[in-house]
Write a protein that binds this DNA or RNA. Structure first.
Lengths: 196, 196
DNA sequence: GCGCTTGTTCACAACATTGTGAACAACATC
DNA sequence: GATGTTGTTCACAATGTTGTGAACAAGCGC
């Protein structure tokens, strides 16, 4: 992963707007891009989504490409993927309809957790089960591998799966006021745990 | 990120052990590697750590390289980084002391959260503040960018920081029994939230 | 139809990442 | 010391990722 925290000082290529506000907005897009990149998407997805989320009007791919100073081909591909994930929506169903951001991103995060994280934990769990079985078969003396360590890790994968299952079913409040209370409860609870 | 869920069927290069148990253990190492790769480390880190964690005896770099079927140079570099992160420990302080895994990985996870995630959120927050200021300066009519959207996102970054702060101070129980109760409490709480 | 804009596709360039092998340095043992 | 083993470093190959530009397709307005 490349950390792109510094803003770019390169000369813009063409119709890229350079007024104070646009520059600031582009910085936000870059920051969201870096953030989202860390979570398994590509930076360009976050940049496009952030721009659409901040724009008052729907935007075409050309407008997005110009604003973000990237090629139209890059926007085209990324937009198709955003659409697939339901993170972006065309404002009509004809070809050239401009796009808006879908602000409620939780369903997508939930999908990502289900799709990737679950698979990773599950394959670790299966591998551990296989290894435990193999240890019990073998009659190494002295034993090369610690079966109780394996059982510990196996238990950890099961715990992780429990967590993921719960997270996947979690309903995060959509509105900010609801979220505030939700956050407060959760924070208080976690702080209690921190004191253990 | 490359998903390496299938096990390798290539012919081993040299002294790589191929008995049933070793193959299973190697599968576990690969699974842990894939998992940890997703969390911002390299797969090789996870593989080495898992191997040391499962091994009953401390291992030298050569033994690790042979078992995992990779070059010594790769192990050397990765081991240095693991040491730096405190995920691995030499069993003595002379040069050729074999290594063992540090099982308590929470401090490192905490460091990662502080180091990367915090920076990412913080730079987004700063960028948003800048953009909000720029909007208030400008007198666009009609406005091109939605300042209330920005405020919403700003609030989200602050919430994320609250969470991260709490997580960073969190004490996760070291022992499995303690962890069981901890997990149970947390799960119950989260399930409560899910019902909101 | 014709021109113009928009979106898509694809081959490729630029770059980053991961792992290798060979040369070397640091030790241990004889 | 000589010898062998272990760990480190570095230039590099192999591969993957990200973004480009040009060619093309699909619409829209005339």
């Amino acid at each position: 992963m490349t950390m792109r925290l510094e803003e770019s000082t390169e000369a813009p290529r063409g119709r890229t707007p350079t007024d104070r506000l646009s520059v600031r907005v582009r910085q936000v897009c870059d920051a969201v891009g870096s953030f989202i990149e860390y979570w398994g998407f590509k930076a360009i997805h976050g940049r496009i989504w952030a721009l659409l989320a901040l724009s008052t009007a729907p935007m075409t791919q050309v407008e997005v490409a110009d604003f973000l100073d990237v090629s139209r081909s890059l926007v085209s591909g990324a937009m198709a993927e955003l659409l697939e994930h339901g993170l972006v929506r065309p404002t009509a169903d004809h070809r050239n309809a401009p796009y808006v951001a879908v602000v409620d991103v939780w369903p997508t995060i939930s999908d990502v957790l289900r799709g990737r994280e679950w698979m990773l934990v599950e394959s670790a769990r299966v591998a551990l089960e296989g290894a435990i079985e193999a240890v019990e078969m073998s009659s190494d003396m002295p034993p090369r591998f610690a079966v109780e360590r394996m059982r510990f890790l196996l238990r950890m994968t099961e715990i992780a799966q429990t967590f993921l299952r719960i997270l996947m079913n979690l309903r995060v409040p959509r509105k900010l006021e609801g979220l505030g209370g939700w956050l407060k409860d959760t924070a208080k609870f976690l702080q209690g745990l921190a004191a253990v």
